[in-house]
Simulated scan of single mutants.
Amino acid sequence: MRDTFVKTLIDIAKEDKNVHLITGDLGFGVLKPFWEQLPDQFTNAGIAEQNMTSFAAGMALEGKTVFTYSIGNFPTLRAIEQIRNDCAYHNANVKIVCVGGGFVYGSLGMSHHATEDLSIMRALPDVTVLAPGDLVEAEHATRAIYEHEGTCYLRLGRGGEKRIHDETEDFQIGKAIQIKEGEKVAVFSTGAIFDEAVEASEMLKKGGINPALYTFPTVKPIDSETIRECAKEFDLIVTVEEHNVIGGFGSAVSEVMAELVGTKARVLKIGLNDKYSSIVGSQKYLRDVYGMSCTKIVEKVKGVLSEQNINLS
């Protein structure tokens, strides 16, 4: 995803000289093509993410469209006051990019695990929050936040993610994308954990359960219309996120569901169950330990269906 982001941003910046990229002293292997081709549109702010964010806000208020780039929690949680006061409050055209959402940097410990960023960023007024699920969505999301006026947050994976879409037509901020139709169960996913949701969907189908599958590249504004439609059509909605289940994507879906009147689906939220990881390991390993792998998703869905006595025939 990060390579896709950089390639897309280079194309954008070549056409718009007001685009500027600021890094917090990292990503040089990935960002090298940008600074080599566009040296006057690139700044290394050093390991000083608060300063980077305020600097970006100042440039944006002078007419620039500024992208800040760092890993995990550093461009978000470390600089949250500057994002709130300097960027969001002024509706500044700052695009905050996190590479390494969730457990991407799992072996570096909880300081590098980005598992509260979606909830914190979506709580800030006027901040648009995107978490693309694959390379195609990452490209469209990069272009979308560039075109969108105001402060945005883009949460990326790291590298090696699968290309799941052949192409995505009519990508829009605030719109979910239906991947496949199904019955009784609908699986909603946001971010790079989409690959686990796809595999879980295929495993469920082999077991006689045919879930519908949706990806939500936008967490805020959430696609309320799709949620409402699915709540009426399906018995169970499963939300999958590589993030704390408190305040994130599952909570955003649940907020819409809570205001519905009449018969509606049950919600099963799959994510990190309100804890910090005290374990280090690969992203794949930690997903499984904390119940977000494809096999664990299948187990949880089957458990709820059995508990609810939902007839799938």
Score class of each variant (00 low, 15 high):
F34R: 04
P125N: 11
V30C: 09
F216Y: 15
G46R: 02
D16H: 01
Q50I: 06
G58A: 12
T263Q: 05
M257D: 02
V238I: 11
A138T: 14
S201F: 04
T8L: 01
N93L: 05
Q172R: 15
I310L: 05
K232L: 15
E259P: 03
F194A: 03
G160R: 13
E139S: 02
E307M: 08
D126S: 15
V301T: 10
L260M: 13
V253G: 07
L204F: 00
S313G: 05
I246Q: 01
I71W: 09
V240M: 03
D195M: 12
K162G: 01
T218H: 09
V198I: 11
G174H: 09
D235A: 03
V129S: 10
E241N: 00
A57H: 06
N93Q: 12
R122L: 09
T65F: 01
V185W: 11
M110S: 15
R228N: 13
S54H: 14
F194N: 06
L118M: 12
D166H: 14
V261M: 12
I177N: 12
L9H: 04
D86H: 08
T168H: 03
A56P: 08
A186T: 10
C230H: 05
K275W: 00
E169Q: 10
T151H: 07
G72V: 15
D274Q: 05
A265R: 10
I237D: 07
L260Q: 05
A141K: 10
G174M: 12
K296I: 06
Y153N: 03
F103Y: 10
A176W: 14
K7I: 07
M121A: 02
L130C: 11
G208P: 09
T215F: 01
E181P: 13
I177K: 00
I179R: 15
S111G: 11
T128K: 08
I209S: 05
P221E: 04
K300V: 04
G182W: 02
F74A: 13
G150T: 14
R78P: 08
E259V: 00
S251F: 04
V219H: 04
W35P: 03
L108W: 04
Q37E: 08
F216C: 03
Y69N: 09
Q172I: 06
T218E: 01
Q283S: 11
V256A: 12
G157K: 09
R155K: 08
V219M: 05
V185I: 15
E147K: 15
K7D: 10
S107I: 15
A92F: 02
I164C: 05
E139C: 04
S189I: 08
N85S: 09
I310C: 04
A13V: 00
T168I: 10
L108T: 02
N44A: 15
C230I: 03
H20P: 07
K300M: 02
N51V: 08
A92I: 07
V19R: 10
D25H: 09
N44F: 12
D3M: 08
T115E: 03
R158K: 06
V240Y: 01
K180C: 12
A265N: 10
L38R: 07
